[in-house]
């Protein structure tokens, strides 16, 4: 297990370093002078040149890269040209909201799609199966932002329980200072009113964000379950008198969950991408609005920061899933680990 973990961690570290270098190169290739952007169109050529000197843009490329990576190790992502604050502070301020949204979305995806997929497999070719098939199709074909807008319209006209914008009612006067995730902090502090309010805020954006993944994961769970149900050992377990519930959830689902979990890990990338749009629609105070603004303004330091943080998200989600898979299916470990 240890070798397996170490191998995975080192691979991901390499991926991360590669990402950092790549995004830095891309940022230097795109046209537009960051110094000029920072100073505005009215600045003189000399001012721009001084700014370039100060920002280190005149140094050789590799020196810039080195300084950048060295800063990265110390958690320094440079200054935002837009807000003139350290990028890291801006990102850390906006991150918890996005993190909460994504976590809740993944939670929704797992709790909805896997049980539905299992149901569809157990009652294969019945109306249950057909019903889930339709749901998953709708979920997969509807773009996240369309769903977001539809849900917002419905909420504003029909279901007034769900607010259409924001993260929590500011009137409740709640400071999430423990985990910085409102849903969790309100539970810790026993503020049920805040929890309900935050839940009603996060529900619609999460549904809009989760829909595509739910559809996919549901279908994959279904086919994985059906495949596993054909294995001899399932028949053997039944014949040895293991109860049906243990066979389905203890044996079959455990093996079948490998495929949907892998997909969930990959889905994470598109989840972050879609979160940008959904957050915009619902005015969610997350990293997305910051990201979009910085991209439009060519605030390169901030863009690099946002991409890197999204990358870390993705890399860690997949590390987590890899570890989970190693626990679920020991064959992953046995093949790759030290014990041959």
């Amino acid at each position: 297990m240890f070798t397996y973990l170490l191998k995975r961690t080192v691979t991901l570290l390499l991926v991360f370093i590669g990402l950092a270098i790549l995004i830095f190169i891309i940022a230097r290739i795109v046209p537009g002078d960051p110094a000029r952007i920072a100073l505005g169109p009215l600045a003189s050529a000399q001012q721009v040149e001084e700014m370039r000197q100060e920002m280190g843009l005149n140094d050789p490329f590799f020196v810039q890269l080195w300084n950048y990576l060295a800063g990265l190790v110390q958690g320094d992502l440079g200054k935002s040209l837009l807000t003139s604050r350290p990028v890291i502070d801006d990102i850390l301020g906006a991150l918890p909201a996005t993190f909460e949204l994504v976590l809740f979305t993944v939670f929704l995806q797992i709790t909805l799609s896997i049980p539905l997929g299992v149901l569809a497999a157990v009652y294969r070719d019945s109306w249950v199966d057909n019903f889930t098939r339709i749901i998953s199709l709708i979920g997969v074909v509807t773009p996240g932002f369309v769903l977001a807008i539809i849900l917002q319209l419905l909420a504003s006209y029909q279901f007034s329980f769900f607010p259409v914008t924001g993260r929590v009612d500011p009137g409740l006067n709640f400071e999430p200072d423990i985990t910085r995730l409102i849903l969790i902090d309100s539970l810790i502090k026993g503020r049920s009113d805040v929890f309900i309010d935050a839940f009603s805020h996060i529900f619609l954006p999460s549904i809009a964000l989760a829909a595509a993944g739910i559809g996919q994961v549901m279908r994959i769970t279904r086919s994985a379950m059906i495949e596993v149900s054909r294995f001899d050992f399932i028949e053997a377990s039944r014949a040895y008198g293991i109860p049906e519930r243990v066979v389905t959830f203890g044996y079959m689902l455990r093996i079948a969950s490998v495929a949907p979990l892998t997909i969930l890990g990959l889905e994470f990338a598109s989840l972050i991408g879609n979160a940008f749009v959904v957050e915009f629609v619902f005015s969610w105070p997350g990293i997305a609005s910051y990201g979009v603004r910085t991209i439009l303004q060519k605030d390169l330091n901030a863009v690099i920061g946002v991409v890197l943080v999204s990358g870390i998200f993705f890399v860690f989600a997949n590390l987590f899933i890899d570890i989970l898979l190693g626990i679920i299916d020991p064959r992953h470990r046995i093949r790759e680990g030290s014990s041959k």
Partner: peptide, 21 residues
């Protein structure tokens, strides 16, 4: 009650008959 304790089986393929995980 009869499954496993009255009648038991041995299936053909010794690898596929086990839960691999």
């Amino acid at each position: 009650k009869i499954k496993g304790s009255g009648i038991s089986i041995i299936l053909q393929d010794p690898l596929l008959s086990f839960n691999p995980v």
